[in-house]
Structure formats: C-alpha cells, structure tokens
Design a protein around this nucleic acid. Structure first.
Length: 298
DNA sequence: TCCCAGGTCCTAC
DNA sequence: GTAGGACCTGGG
C-alpha cells in the first residue's frame, strides 16, 4: 500500500524552525539532530523532514491533508513581495529560512490556544498531551511510538471537572468544556468559518454568549484564524509581539502600551493590517519567531 | 522559594 | 472605556 506522502521543494521547509515555532504544540523531534519530527495531522501519525512529510499510520493515499497542513500553495517570496519595504521584517525573513505558516485543524487549534492562556510553551504542551492521552484514541503505527488523536468536541463536552483538572488545565477547564459544548451542539461551526471573511469569523469566535465565560478573547481568536483557518489578515498580539511593535513600530502602537485593552488590541492589530495588507499574519509569524529566537540565543 | 507564562474575565472608578 | 487584580500550576 502506498501511504500518504508529499515531497517538499528544495529550501521550502525547515522542520525545526516551523514545528517549534509556537503555532502547533504536538510535534516532537525524533532525536537530538532535530532533522526528523513526528506529529499528528488529520488523525494520522506523520513523520517530517526537510525533504518530505510521510504518513506512518494508515494506508490512505490522500495527500491533500498534508498539502493543506503545510500551506504548500503559499509562496513565501511572493507574499513578502506584497509587503512595503521593512528592515525589521526583512531581517526576520533572512534569519528564518523555511519557516512555514501551518494550516491546522481549527478545533484542535482553538482548544490549544485556550490552553495557552497565561501559560508558557512547555506547559501548553503538557496540557494538550494530557488531554489527548486521556480522551483521544490511540493511533496504531509500525513504530514504537505512542500517538493519540486529539479528542473530539463531543468527548470533551462530556468530560468532568475532576478529569479535566487531572489533565492540569487549571482554571481553563471551564473554558474548554464550555467551548466543547458549543461546538458539539453546532452552535459554533468552525468549518463554516472557512468560507467567511476574517472580520465575520472573528466576530463569530469572540461573540459573547449569554454572559457566560468563554475563554476566547481577541488573541486566541486571531491565533485560530491565522494558524488553522488561514485567515492571513489576522495579526495576533501577545506580549512578545507587543514588545516588538513598541520597539520597531511605535507609530502603529502609539508609543508604549500600558495595558492591552480589547479596544487597543483591535486598533493596533488593524494598524498592522493597514501596514502589511492581506498577508499581515505572515509578518506576525516571522516577527514573533524571530523575537523568540533572539531572546533564547541571548 | 519566588516569579512568570503566546490572556481572559471581573470589578471598581 | 480603562486600569488593576485574580486565576491553576508547571517550569526556570
């Protein structure tokens, strides 16, 4: 049987830079060389290198899911050609060859970024792994490797507070359960958001529902829109990006930002959209990853 | 031991 | 509207 497999063009993809960039949280390097990575795409175990992505777990020939996941049709050079000249951004691009914007499953992405609230990346990973182990299904592979699918909305909607807390979700447990219920009932239809504009899908994600706590603010919503629904206008603003913007884009932030209220968030995000256009999200990705890399190599 | 983390929500002005 | 604080808890 031929299993799903795609080849990456030369210098298209750097697994280490992309899969450890804070877009997705379930990829693991196979060894210390960090040349090969293993993760899960559309419920299948996938092994990735600089040259290819290969499904290890089933016998489907479907390569579409892989192509979509790695945003294979996006040409980074053409996208950067749409940007105005920008020294900071150009330097980020030079420093991050092979960084790709992923197009993940929106449901998994939404829960992942709810788990990210007030957490560091190792801690986010832990939560998502715990959820998958506890509520996902084991995926069979030839390898000696334990992989679990991401739990469905129906499953998480039924999960108890106690069990969610054993997954180390902390106060986020109620957000996860609440969102899972909305998705399971069809009140929130993530797939439908693929076909609507950035603004409409943003409103849909952060719309208030009967005064109940929801856990999806502008930042989480923008991450889902950019990293899973491929709304490339989305410009998520977190603490790292905010520091970067204050320093390199003071006109857009209006100087230093004391506290990022929703109103300010939308104003700054919109200003970056005005500056970089319909691919502003790509600018965000490159700036964010560059900030993190520079910080860790200091 | 203490502080912080890819934010969000609640409360008091 | 806006600022300030609480929030679970694992890691550094």
């Amino acid at each position: 049987m031929t299993r799903g497999r795609i080849e990456f063009p030369p210098s298209f993809f750097d697994p280490s830079i992309t899969l450890d960039s804070g877009q997705a949280f379930r990829w693991r390097p196979l060894d210390e060389s960090r040349n090969g990575w293993i993760g899960i795409v559309s419920g299948n175990v996938v092994k990735v290198s600089e040259k290819e992505a290969r499904v290890l777990s089933d016998n489907s020939q479907d390569t579409e899911a892989l192509q979509r996941y790695f945003s294979i049709d996006d040409d980074i050079d053409s996208i950067f050609a749409t940007f105005p000249y920008d020294k900071t951004l150009n330097s980020s691009k030079r420093g991050l060859p092979g960084l790709r914007l992923l197009t993940q499953d929106p449901w998994e992405c939404l829960i992942s970024f709810v788990c990210s609230i007030n957490c560091n990346i190792p801690s986010i990973r832990l939560k998502i792994d715990n959820l998958s182990r506890r509520y996902g299904k084991k995926i069979e592979t030839d390898l000696d490797f334990e992989a679990y699918s991401f739990p469905t909305a129906e499953t998480l909607a039924k999960a108890s507070k106690r069990d969610l807390l054993t997954c180390k979700l902390g106060f986020r447990w109620k957000y996860v359960k609440f969102i899972a219920k909305r998705v399971a009932k069809g009140e929130l239809d993530l797939d439908k958001l693929r076909n609507v504009s950035y603004q409409v899908s943003l409103q849909e994600l952060i719309s208030e529902t009967s005064g109940m706590t929801f856990g999806v603010g502008p930042k989480v919503a923008d991450c889902v829109l950019l990293y899973s629904l491929h709304k490339t206008e989305a410009f998520p603003i977190d603490v790292w990006i905010l520091r970067c913007l204050e320093r390199f884009y003071p006109e857009e932030t209006g100087g230093s930002v004391r506290s990022l209220t929703p109103k300010k968030y939308f104003a700054i995000s919109e200003a970056m959209r005005m500056k970089f256009g319909r691919y502003a999200g790509y600018a965000q990705l490159y700036l964010y990853v560059k900030m993190r890399h520079d910080f860790h190599s200091m």
